[in-house]
């Protein structure tokens, strides 16, 4: 049966359908792949269109220069974004103060000191920490961290900026730790060995060689952490309160941009009201903040990759 298989192949009927499939599939897959692009376009268009509607009712300058956010007032509603930005920055600031030292220390420990066994245990545990839903963190902030803080500092209110700030910090530790560790461990071993062979201690290697070499990667991880903290929603909705304030108070109730969106969505702000459109304006502001951070982080990590 020398040619019989080839004959069977020649006789096989699915040649035509094969050709059609080969033409059709790439088109179909291209359409599928364009969904992610359409999503971005959809987000931007949605935010822009609804925000523009918002600006037909509230002057643009009131929004970006105003320092009073009083959307629910019947007589004199005010939509100055700054109190929400300040609230967001308070949370982000505390989160960074918590997460950066711990995250980077953990990264240095894992990449420079820890044995393989320790690493094998610690890294998955950090992954677990990263996989916990934010609603759980929010519950933790409200029912544990706040009472503990109150027992030391009685002036702290039930809703405040400190407790959710700390917990947002805990939430972004795994991200900063693992991205920084990636950056540090991609510094070539030969450079490290060179320094060790000169009689450097591990700390000197970490501080004078690895960290400076991995700096742009580490900064990228911090910026990404910042972006995550700015966009974090549930922790602040549960534990930070809903009082937009333009001041420097951390112990009382505040409100972030994300928490405002949740507050309005939860309530019955009817479709078409100014309050309804205001969540898009706030969402757009939030989007611009996180986008700027992400682009900055992308730029930093690209610079880092180019170095090695």
């Amino acid at each position: 049966m020398r040619t019989s298989v080839q004959e069977m192949i020649a006789k096989s009927k699915d040649k035509k359908s094969k050709k059609i499939i080969e033409k059709l599939i790439p088109v179909l897959l291209f359409l599928i792949a364009s969904v992610s692009v359409l999503t971005t376009i959809g987000i931007i268009l949605t935010l822009i269109i609804e925000t523009l509607t918002f600006f037909t009712r509230v002057p643009f300058t009131d929004f970006i220069f105003g320092t009073t956010w009083l959307p629910f007032s019947n007589t004199e509603a005010r939509f100055g974004i700054w109190p929400l930005i300040i609230g967001t920055l308070k949370i982000t600031g505390i989160a960074i103060i918590v997460a950066v030292p711990i995250g980077i220390s953990a990264a240095i420990y894992l990449s420079e000191y820890a044995s393989d066994n320790v690493r094998r245990v610690v890294k998955p545990v950090l992954e677990v920490l990263a996989g916990i839903p934010t609603i759980v963190y929010g519950f933790f902030a409200l029912t544990f961290v706040t009472p503990v803080l109150q027992s030391f500092f009685p002036e702290i209110k039930i809703f405040n900026a400190i407790s959710p700030g700390i917990v947002v910090g805990i939430m972004i530790i795994p991200m900063i730790a693992s991205l920084s560790e990636d950056a540090m461990s991609s510094v070539p071993k030969s450079i490290r060995d060179g320094a060790l062979a000169m009689g450097s201690t591990k700390f000197e290697v970490a501080w004078k060689i690895t960290v400076p070499a991995a700096l742009s990667g580490i900064i990228a991880s911090v910026v990404l952490g910042l972006s995550r903290a700015i966009g974090e929603t549930m922790i602040v909705s549960l534990a930070a309160g809903s009082t937009p304030k333009f001041d420097g108070d951390f112990t009382g109730s505040i409100q972030t941009m994300t928490a405002y969106i949740v507050q309005v969505s939860k309530g019955d702000a009817g479709y078409g009201t100014t309050i309804y459109y205001s969540i898009y304006a706030v969402g757009f502001t939030l989007f611009l903040f996180t986008m700027a951070m992400n682009i900055l982080a992308g730029y930093m990590s690209k610079r880092f990759r180019e170095e090695y």
């Binding site: 298989v5 069977m8 192949i9 096989s12 009927k13 699915d14 040649k15």
Partner: peptide, 8 residues
């Protein structure tokens, strides 16, 4: 594998 992809 070969025969199958060619329709056998």
């Amino acid at each position: 594998y070969g025969p199958r992809i060619h329709g056998i």
